[in-house]
Nucleic acid binder design. Structure first.
Lengths: 221, 221
DNA sequence: TTGACAACATACATCCATGTATGTATAATT
DNA sequence: AATTATACATACATGGATGTATGTTGTCAA
């Protein structure tokens, strides 16, 4: 005669406290980031995320509407502290805004390099294509990016006020040039190729950019 | 009694000549590019590509092994003429290699801006994440990129030979700096934001980069 | 203390994309 | 002229992902 020991049946389905719920939400986010980093956004199913976070898809659908919402949540995790760092730096009004900006750039790079989670999130947003279900976030995320651009512009405006810039130079073009350089630098750094080592070359590259190439001609005999 | 007029049955299934087959292959590629540009690589099915190219999935599976192979074929279409342009330019050994390089950059940008197909293919490869089934091409495509980087380096080496560069400057860092800037510039240009207008600002941005930011300090009273 | 609801787990239905197998008519080959 | 391989179209089988509906249990508020 078969007997089943009912006490051995796992009762997995018990409600968690608010704090525990918050923890599972975070577990889902880090699990999602793990998956996205390894296989890309479009190649990970909600089931894989669930397994990585040691929950079920039910938990995911409880905390998030769908996969795109997880994507957006990760974006917020990266962008807000980033903006904060620039805003704090802008509070100091030094005598040489451009040198200050140079130091900020180096600081931002090192800050990114030291935080693996930030690196992975940023990599995610550099590589993803905002198409299909992600299209809804394209504009929002780009607007946020534009805001950080506007922040950089303030350094150049201060430099103009202090007459440290040639009046001919266009601050908009300056900001764009810097933005393009930083973007490309990050893109290359995040690409997975070991082409750029921030610890080793980060400062050199920033310095080289701020010095420009024409400078070199001065070495002519 | 039912009668079927057999003469009215479309005989769609007729073999094409070699040239016609080549044309359908091209139709598939342009159809795929259309779809990828609009909805992204991962969000387009082979069926959508087939419809866009006015063929069936059968035709696609005849000409290509699968979707990743289409992706790779598009890459070849962009990269080869690009390399060719640089190689041709390198054949001219002018007296000011850095100015020559500057002009080449401007030329490359304008060349890209004038060819919508090239723009769309490049956009595709900037935005895609080489994960999942595309992982197999990551290394190959990156190696090709590294080769073009090596080509840029030659301009700086020539400048060194002509003693037009400060001996302190590291040509590797120079190449990397330029590469990062161009990459970021293209990235921003291709991002879909109208932040960068090549016709209007392309030359300005390149010039600004080659002049550098430190130059501006010379305007101090 | 007792509903009511939160926080999930489980089960189910549906759809869609992929790959392959098969059919077929014509161009190329002999 | 007969044969064969090409250049597809069509049909089928499969799996996997999504979303939703429903079940379960503990928590918290009244």
């Amino acid at each position: 005669m078969l007997s089943i020991n009912l006490t051995s049946v796992k009762l997995v389905n018990m409600r968690k406290t608010k704090e525990e719920a918050q923890k599972t939400k975070e577990k889902i986010l880090t699990g999602a980031l793990d998956c996205f980093s390894e296989q890309g956004y479009f190649n990970t199913s909600l089931d894989e995320i669930a397994k990585r976070a040691a929950v079920t898809r039910g938990a995911i659908y409880w905390h998030f509407k769908n996969k795109p919402e997880i994507f957006d949540a990760l974006h917020g995790l990266l962008h807000e502290p980033f903006i904060q760092l620039i805003l704090e730096d802008l509070e100091h009004d030094t005598e040489e805004p451009i040198s200050q900006l140079k130091l900020l750039c180096i600081k931002l790079l090192n800050n990114l390099d030291e935080n693996k989670t930030k690196t992975r999130i940023m990599k995610l947003f550099f590589e993803c294509d905002y198409s299909g279900h992600l299209a809804q976030f394209k504009k929002t995320h780009q607007d946020k990016k534009l805001n950080s651009l506007k922040l950089f512009e303030q350094y150049f405006e201060r430099a103009i006020q202090r007459k440290q810039l040639n009046p001919k130079t266009d601050p908009q073009i300056l900001t764009l040039t810097l933005h393009c350089f930083l973007k490309g630098l990050l893109f290359e750094y995040l690409s997975g190729l070991e082409l750029i080592n921030i610890k080793k070359d980060g400062t050199k590259l920033i310095n080289q950019f701020f010095e420009g190439l024409n400078q070199c001609h001065k070495a002519k005999p």
